[in-house]
Each structure stands twice: as structure tokens, then as C-alpha cells.
């Protein structure tokens, strides 16, 4: 399938006068590499800064969005995917999609068993706490699950 695509087609993008060109693969220009590195550092600073601003639910979404942008930069520039065979990109995206499938189905039911889960600290943790830290605040009740499990 990919046999027809010629590698050399994309190789000239990295041309510099007097530079050796490999028969296969693609030489990424230095400005791309350094630019990508700088962008990643800047995004790291931004994502740390955003942590201290309260955006509610959006905090997680924003942090993940920045992480996705950073990952894309790494994949496309550092990992050559921008110039590589498309099938390799498909492999990367495919693997992420399958993680997504696993997450979607497993997470769908996340509150299904809440009624049968322990409120407060689980027994094994609690016995240890009781034994070792008598002053510790054991077994606080979760208010978030609306007392579903509080059937006793």
C-alpha cells in the first residue's frame, strides 16, 4: 500500500546547501526542532500558571488540551510524523482511539456500584488508622454521592 509513496518526495524540505542527504528518511531542519522545543517549554509554563486560576471544571479540560497540543508537537516534529508515512500516524492515532474505547465503556458505569461501595475509608485502611493514629480523622462520609450508600 505504502510502497508507492516515495520517501525522497518529502526529503527536500530539509535542504541546506552542502548537507549530506540520507537515502531514506527525512532530515528535519534545525529551526523546526528548536522551535518545537521552545514551544513545548512555553506551553509547560502556561499549563503550570493556569493551575492557579480557578476555572472550575475547565481547569482539567484546559490542562489536557495543552497536553494534547504538546503531544502533537512532539509527534509531528520530534517524531517526524509530519514527513513520515501516513500509516505510522494511523498506528499512533489508532492506539489512542482504542484506549479511548476502553475508557469510554469502563467509565460509563462508574457510579453504578456506588450503592455497594464503602462510605468513608475502607475497612482495611480504617483498621490501620485506628491502630496507628488515634487522632486521625477516620471515616468521613462522602457528601458527593448523595447518601446513596447510606442505607443503614
Amino acid at each position: 500500500m505504502a510502497h508507492q509513496v516515495s520517501h525522497s518526495a518529502g526529503a527536500h524540505a530539509g535542504s541546506h546547501a552542502g548537507e549530506v542527504h540520507p537515502e531514506v528518511g527525512h532530515v528535519v531542519p534545525i529551526k523546526y526542532l528548536v522551535g518545537a522545543g521552545a514551544a513545548l517549554l512555553v506551553l509547560t509554563v502556561i499549563t503550570v500558571a493556569v493551575r492557579y486560576i480557578d476555572l472550575g471544571e475547565a481547569n482539567l479540560a484546559l490542562a489536557l488540551a495543552i497536553a494534547v497540543v504538546k503531544a502533537t508537537i512532539v509527534a509531528l516534529i520530534f517524531m517526524h510524523l509530519r514527513w513520515d508515512r501516513p500509516f505510522n500516524l494511523l498506528v499512533l492515532i489508532g492506539s489512542i482511539v482504542f484506549v479511548g474505547i476502553m475508557l469510554a465503556f469502563s467509565a460509563m458505569d462508574v457510579h453504578q456500584n456506588s450503592a455497594t461501595m464503602f462510605n468513608g475509608n475502607p475497612p482495611e485502611a480504617e483498621t490501620v488508622m485506628q491502630a496507628n493514629a488515634p487522632g486521625a480523622p477516620v471515616a468521613q462520609f462522602r457528601s458527593t454521592n448523595g447518601g446513596v450508600g447510606d442505607t443503614n
Binding site: A115, T116, F118, E126, Q130, V138, F141, G149, T151
Partner: peptide, 22 residues
């Protein structure tokens, strides 16, 4: 400890209600 309500305790360990108020 894995009772239907999830509140049964093993070894006679106090239930969380009792333990909750140090």
C-alpha cells in the same frame, strides 16, 4: 466485609458511624 449494603464489618471492627467521631 462485602455485604450487599457494603457496611458489614469484619472482625467486629466498629462501623464507620462509630469510628467517625473521634
Amino acid at each position: 466485609s462485602v455485604g450487599p449494603s457494603g457496611m458489614a464489618r469484619a472482625n467486629g471492627t466498629p462501623a464507620p458511624e462509630q469510628a467517625a467521631a473521634p
